[in-house]
Amino acid sequence: MDFFVSEIFTTAKGKLKEEIVNWGYQPCKEDYYKVLCSADVAVSTAIHEFFGVAMLEAVHCGCYPLVPSRLVYPEIFPKTYLYNTPAQLAKKLRNFCKFPHLVRLHTLEVNPVDYSWDRLKGGYRELLHAE
């Protein structure tokens, strides 16, 4: 599979190759969840997103989410997890690298169960059966 790869990712991979534990697409769902469960922080730099499923999966696995203050993210995530500029994102990540306990001991303020099918299906059924 060939995907468009931004130059910044190629540069980052080259500079950080000794530090990278996992990179890119995971061949099966179990591997994907293992990667998420081994991480402390999940970052989204999305410029196109409908629901934020990947970040909710990361939160479900215990990751501290850092998401842009745009798209669907402000509807799901409290301000604690939002950033407005690349500089703000870099500052938060730098701080977490210096003080990893800040994320490892943090109690997440987002409950991904609130967005699960079990929780939402009643509302969808009600909406779809409304006259």
Rank of each mutant, 00 (worst) to 15 (best):
P86S: 09
P86M: 09
A90T: 08
C97V: 13
N95L: 14
R94E: 14
K91A: 15
Y81Q: 03
Y81F: 04
S69D: 13
Y73T: 01
P74N: 04
A90P: 03
L93T: 13
F96I: 00
L71C: 13
K91N: 13
Y83A: 04
T85R: 06
Q88K: 04
E75C: 12
K91C: 15
S69W: 11
S69F: 11
P68Y: 02
K98F: 12
P68E: 01
F77E: 00
P78F: 03
R94G: 15
P78I: 02
P78A: 05
L93C: 12
Y81D: 01
Y83L: 04
T85I: 08
L89R: 03
Q88T: 05
P74Y: 03
I76V: 08
T80M: 12
K92Y: 08
P68W: 01
A90S: 11
V67C: 03
K98M: 11
N84H: 14
E75H: 06
L71Y: 08
S69R: 12
L82I: 09
K98H: 10
K91S: 12
P86F: 06
Y81G: 00
Y73D: 04
F96A: 00
T80Y: 14
P78D: 02
P78W: 03
K98P: 10
P74G: 01
R70G: 13
L89H: 02
T85Y: 12
Q88R: 08
T80S: 10
Y83G: 00
Y81W: 00
V72E: 05
P74I: 01
V72L: 06
Q88E: 09
Q88W: 05
P78T: 00
N95G: 15
P74W: 02
Q88N: 09
K98Y: 10
R70I: 15
T80K: 10
P86C: 06
S69Y: 14
F77H: 06
F96K: 00
I76M: 04
I76L: 03
A90W: 09
T85K: 09
E75K: 07
Y73Q: 01
K79C: 12
P78Y: 03
A90C: 09
